[in-house]
Design a protein around this nucleic acid. Structure first.
Lengths: 225, 225
DNA sequence: GTCTATACTTAGATAGAC
DNA sequence: GTCTATCTAAGTATAGAC
């Protein structure tokens, strides 16, 4: 007869691939697709169906791998927070302000550059009142800001920079560096381009570094203590 | 019998109010409620039901007044664009750079302050790829940016400010001034407050003006040509 | 381990009672 | 002019076939 075996019927999988590899690949594609969809529509606006279509899988497959919509969303938020934490290196009062601020601006720009959907996902979460991130903001992130702010103040006391409000300086850097990713549609619409290139990112980084350092009275890197 | 007239049955309206007044009041409350809900959840994430509850009206009443969800959303976007256009006064090369930039920062801050939900509504629209605002961005707004950018360049040629990229300067001001409204949840979470006061807004305005003007090599207002 | 079929809820929108 | 009742589509989630 013309019967085919069960395994032949049910595997649109490439030869040589084990079950574990399929799971890994599917999970990765679901996560990527979900990050795009959640970033674009927000938590409520995103549908599991839309995520499944973006990933090229049936809807129930997404739920099978991820459990439920909420868990998938939380997992993506946590992944983005982990990326963010990975570049939060410690600084000390004895570091050079110009070098620290430049590195801060540059690493923040590159994070948004590498993960624009993650950046927009985070932005949408905050825009909606941060229902899933309240604890993170009031805990870890608040402490991070507090310690940096203290160091900026000490730099100002030592005359290494102007006595600007350190918390608002941090917010200024965050907003400026995220803007080109979160508001990409606006940037592209106004500039008339169809993408932001690596060269653009480098120019923006230099522009922001120059304006913010000069604006805070910080001497450029390498001009001595 | 105990019959009441039709009009008595159907008006939870205050005495002395005409039909026109009810409509006006209901429409206003729906618009305010919808701005909050759309700002929080985005276009797709917002439900007519949620808007109706926020406005204290039945769902079909919202649709009766506004036609459909899409029309309501577009109307709110256009209202926000109108507010924005209202403060886009013309500037000339002969104006004082410091005064113009300070007024620009201040008016932008106040727009976000007065209409935080409108600001977040706009942000959510851009975040989602600006599906309803493509034409506005590529038309009116692009022209606005182009003319300002040209003037900033001429100021730089005259030595009134540093030769920074004028378009990125405009984006920097936009991002910095919108941040405290759009990312209010983050600002409050990190600073540990429960609201941003008028005094905070004034402090932020001064901080941004100082840093950006100094950062671009613009002399403070009143220091002569 | 994967997908089809389906249960159950909520969505946007409208018809018709009042 | 306003609201209740209802239609159809789409939402999340699960049970069970394969």
């Amino acid at each position: 007869m013309n019967d085919v075996t069960e395994s032949e019927l049910q595997r649109p999988r490439q030869a040589g691939e084990s079950n574990g590899a399929t799971r890994e690949r599917n999970e990765r594609e679901i996560l990527e697709a979900a990050e795009r969809i959640f970033a674009q529509y927000g938590y409520r606006g995103a549908s599991v169906q839309a995520i499944a279509e973006e990933a090229g899988l049936p809807k129930s497959n997404v739920l099978y791998y991820m459990g439920n919509k909420r868990g998938l969303y939380v997992r993506l938020l946590e992944r983005m927070m982990a990326r963010w934490n990975a570049l939060l290196d410690d600084i000390s009062v004895d570091d050079d302000p110009a070098e620290v601020l430049e590195a801060f601006i540059r690493s923040k720009m590159q994070l948004s550059r590498r993960h624009p959907e993650g950046s927009r996902l985070f932005a949408a979460e905050i825009l909606g009142g941060a229902p899933f991130l309240q604890d993170y903001l009031r805990g870890e992130l608040r402490e991070w800001v507090r310690t940096r702010a203290r160091i900026f103040e000490q730099w100002a006391e030592r005359g290494l920079m102007d006595p600007v409000d350190p918390v608002w300086l941090i917010f200024l850097i965050w907003s400026a560096t995220q803007h080109y990713a979160d508001f990409e549609a606006q940037v592209l619409g106004i500039t008339g381009r169809d993408e932001i290139t690596d060269a653009d990112v480098e120019r923006i980084t230099r522009f922001l570094t120059q304006v913010i350092l000069k604006g805070c009275g910080v001497r450029p890197p390498g001009s001595g203590a």
